[in-house]
Amino acid sequence: MTVILGQTFTGISIGAVLLLIALGLSLTFGQMNVINMAHGEFIMAGAYTTYVLQQHLAGAGLSLLLALPVAFLVAGVLGVALEHLLIRRLYLRPLDTLLVTWGVSLMLQQLARDLFGAPNVQTRAPDWLTGHLTLPLGGAELSLPTSRLFILALALAAVGTLALVLRRTALGRRVRAVVQHRELAEVSGIPTGRVDRTTFFLGSGLAGIAGVALTLVGPIGPAMGTNVIIDAFLVIVAGGIGRLRGCVVAAFVLGVLQSVLEWSTTVSVAKVAVLVALVAFLQWRPQGLYTLRTRSLV
């Protein structure tokens, strides 16, 4: 029983990381049909922001909390720059954005290698995130690392905030309008260009926050973006483009699936099995878990 609960918790915490990574992507992918391969490098930028802040500030806790808004800004500005310089010109060619942003991600990785060196670096976790929370459970005890709980809380807070922004604010209304029907939104007087830029800022900023969270679970290195981006895209494909709900459900399901499979087999077999499961799932729901119903043919 403890094992099952423990694995489920591991799965949920993997899911929380996936959710944080994929959240920003689902926004940019959903809104503009832009496949931003440089998203992983925005995550990396967030992680290095945390590292730099910790080098210059004394307290690990303070620098971590401060890193959240700073990383959001850094990654967001990177995203807006990318959108303004390149992606804006490629809206009619979604597949080409994939290749272009991959080129950008190559350059950003090399930049990180030149600035911080090729070897991975580490940050110190603050004291209040190094312990375990032990829950009494019948005879046994369930021990949950507080850093994982922090990430879970962060992911849920990010989803909550994003949902609130999308549902309740004027910006969110415009974003939803553009996602559902770009042309109609445009003739209704919505400045789609400005909405796109804001969306890209938010989506990329969320990548920065994901980067801060990733410093708590692993090393920071130039290749960290590449390692996570594929999983994030799988979450989007499974969840359905442009749906927040799909993204949340898919992230946690994939997280738990991966954790259970890794526990019962090996890491490498689990990766393949998750992919096979996804292809099988797409047989049943080719557009993902939740789809946006439109009348368009493509």
Binding site: N33, L95, L98, V237, L278, L282
Partner: peptide, 9 residues
Amino acid sequence: AYFALLSQA
């Protein structure tokens, strides 16, 4: 895009 991402995965 779905196809491209799946083939990459």
